[in-house]
Every structure is written in C-alpha cells, then in structure tokens.
Computed example of a mutant assay.
Amino acid sequence: MRELLETRSAGLVGRDGAAAELESLLRAKRLVTVVGPGGVGKSALAAQVAGRLLDEPWAAAGTADLAALDVPGLVPHSLARALRIDGSPALPQLPALAAEIGRRPVLLVVDTCERLAEECAETLEQLVEACPALHVLATSRIPPAAPGTFPLAPLAPDSAVPLLTSAAREAGAPDDPDPDLAYRICASLDGLPLALRIAAGQLAHREADDLLTLIGRPGQLLDLPAPMPELPHRLRTLRGSLCWSVRLCTPGERLLWARAGVFTGPFTRADAVTVCADDRLPPDDLAVAFDGLAAHSLITPVPSGSGAFRMSAATRAYGKQMLELLGEDAEFRRRCLAHCLQEA
C-alpha cells in the first residue's frame, strides 16, 4: 500500500496547508471525503495524507479505487477486498465487514466514489458508526449526502507557478519559463493541476509564449496528453476528465453545460435562464440542472460574492463542442449576444 500511495502522491505541489488541514479533520471526524473537479488532485492529496498516517499502529490498512465499479451492492465487497478482510459467510457483506473490523484501528482510502456516490456515502457512514476506530478518507467529484466533506479548489496562481515549473523540469524543459509568462499560463488554465501538468509537458518542446497562444484556443488543449503514464486513462487528457464528468451528469445538466458554454465570462442563474431556457429545458428544470453543475464543480462561484458563476476555459470548450454536436451553437450564440447587448 505504501508504494501505491507514494506513486499517487508523487509530484504533489502547493498543497502543504491542505494536507495538514485534511489530516487534522480526518483524525477528528474519522470519515472525510475530498471533493472537487476532475484533475484538481483529490487522489494525490488523499494519498499523501494516508501515507503520513501509515506508520501508526493500524490493525489493517487498504485502498479501494471504485472507478470501475458500477454495481451498488458490491461496494462493501470492494472495501473488504481492499482491507483483505473476510467476514462471516453467515452475514450480509456490510454487517460482516463491520463485525470483522470491530474496534480495531483500521485506515481505509476509498478513491473515485462519484459513480456510486449515494451507495458509498451510506456504506461508509454505517461502517464508521459501527467501528469506533475506523478512519476513512474518500474522494469524489460529487459531494456526498453525509457530513465531513473537504472541498479542494484549484491552485491560486502563486501556488500554481511552482507546480508548472517543477513539472516542466520533470518533462525535460530546457529552461524554466519566464515568471510572468508562467503566471499568465497558470491563470489561463484556472490553476487546475492536471491542466498545469499537461502544459508543463508542452514546455519540453515549446516556448512559453507559444504555449500561451495555444492555451488561448482551449479546444485544442483538450486532447493534449499529460506526461504521466501512470495516471488512469480518464485523467490523461482534459477531454478524458471532462468525458468522465459528462457520464455523471443528468440529461438536463449536460444540456445546460452545452448551452452555458456560450458565456465567455461570469454569468448568473438569471442569465442562464434568459439565454439557455426553452421548451427542452424549462426554467424549473434549468434551476435543478444549474445546482447539479455547481455540485459537480463544473461551474464555480465567482469570489466577489456577486452570485455569478463561471466555467473554466476547458469546461467551456467542451461544452461548446457538445453544443455544436447538438446543432444548437448558432442559436444560443445569437441568444447570448442579444442578452449581452441588452444588459450593456
């Protein structure tokens, strides 16, 4: 397990404060889920914190990645297998697992809970309640309906620049990028660690100013590979990461994502209703979809507190491509322009 955690947390930069806070929260609450958008570094942070705790006298420790699991009833089986625990065959799997753990100190890392978010939340909550020395650190793109969440946001530019620079060196870049250009690259990529690592890979054979020009065309950025072959397939490109998020969305959320891609800057819920609502997506359905996209971190509040939200450049580019496939791009670009002119 130690080697796996070290591999997953390798190259984590700019998260020292978050790691310390997460460790403290895990010790206090015993069940904590790291929540945030794809590519923000949830798995790496969880792995680093779990790695710090491994030297403590756990009776058992294990990690379960639920990315490939699509049968809700098998969640307890996956957790038992991760901990190498065989419960009594006379009991259902969850009570058997809880009975086997009992009061023993156990550390469990559960990665990629979003596909079965409700089942995972219920299972983990029941286990922690039944097992007073069990500590569970989970990750999910979707906030669980349970206490103990740890929101993980992208890096601020000042923290993102060291990640870009160190990742570029690892990728073989001949020189460190100019600090001003590095800052602008990080800001353009919204501080998302996966996007920063993809950009760093490009610095091995591009000048920083050329890369900044490329980032200005985010549709082309979607398919560039991250120089980290150990990453799961869904995280090797921004398109792969966003495709995973699409699979987690409802039809209404997908439709709003596509249509809201026409906004080039922050937009409010009222803006979204004016531009994106129609018979296929009535205002009430749109409101539900809006909340869903926010829960998935596909739209994020603007820090000013104005009630406005924004999409990252990559998320917006992916949405625009979905809108083109729907054949609705011209119509909703026209509606957005008309709305902006009216508001000006």
Rank of each mutant, 00 (worst) to 15 (best):
M228W: 13
A99V: 01
D223N: 11
A295F: 01
R115F: 06
S24I: 01
L74E: 14
L242I: 15
S166N: 05
A338H: 11
L231P: 01
E331Y: 04
K320G: 09
V136P: 00
A313D: 14
I198T: 11
P303T: 09
A28C: 01
D176W: 05
A270R: 10
L221R: 04
L323H: 12
L4R: 11
H296D: 06
D55Q: 03
L116Q: 06
D70I: 06
T7H: 06
V40N: 04
L286K: 03
T268I: 05
A96W: 04
E230W: 12
C249M: 12
L298D: 07
A47D: 11
A156R: 14
L194N: 13
L12H: 09
Y183F: 10
C276A: 09
A295S: 11
L286F: 06
A270Q: 14
V106L: 00
A204I: 02
M311Y: 13
R333I: 08
G87F: 09
A80W: 05
L69C: 03
L194K: 11
V71W: 05
G201Q: 11
L164K: 08
G51W: 06
L325H: 10
M228D: 13
A121W: 03
V34M: 00
A133N: 12
R2F: 08
D111S: 03
G292H: 13
T274S: 09
L152G: 07
L298Q: 07
D291N: 08
L231Y: 08
G327F: 11
L242R: 11
A156V: 14
I185E: 12
S297W: 13
G219D: 09
C120A: 07
A96I: 05
V110Y: 04
P162M: 13
V34Q: 00
A61Y: 15
R316F: 05
R8Y: 10
A18W: 08
A61T: 13
E3R: 15
S241D: 07
R8Q: 15
P162H: 12
V275Q: 09
G240S: 10
H339C: 00
A287H: 10
L124Q: 01
C336I: 00
C276F: 10
P283Y: 05
V71M: 04
R335V: 03
R269L: 15
S304H: 08
D190L: 02
A121M: 01
L293F: 12
S241A: 15
P89M: 13
R333Y: 08
R269C: 02
T112P: 01
A168K: 09
L66N: 02
V109M: 15
A130W: 07
G172A: 07
R104M: 03
P179K: 00
L107M: 01
T165N: 06
P92G: 04
L238C: 10
S88C: 08
L83N: 07
A295P: 01
M311L: 15
W58I: 05
A344S: 13
H296I: 07
D158G: 07
D209I: 03
A182R: 09
T112E: 15
A258G: 03
I198D: 06
L238R: 05
H135S: 15
L107T: 01
A160H: 08
P251W: 14
L214D: 14
I101P: 01
P162S: 14
C336H: 10
S78W: 03
L5K: 02
A96T: 12
L155T: 03
A50T: 02
P157I: 12
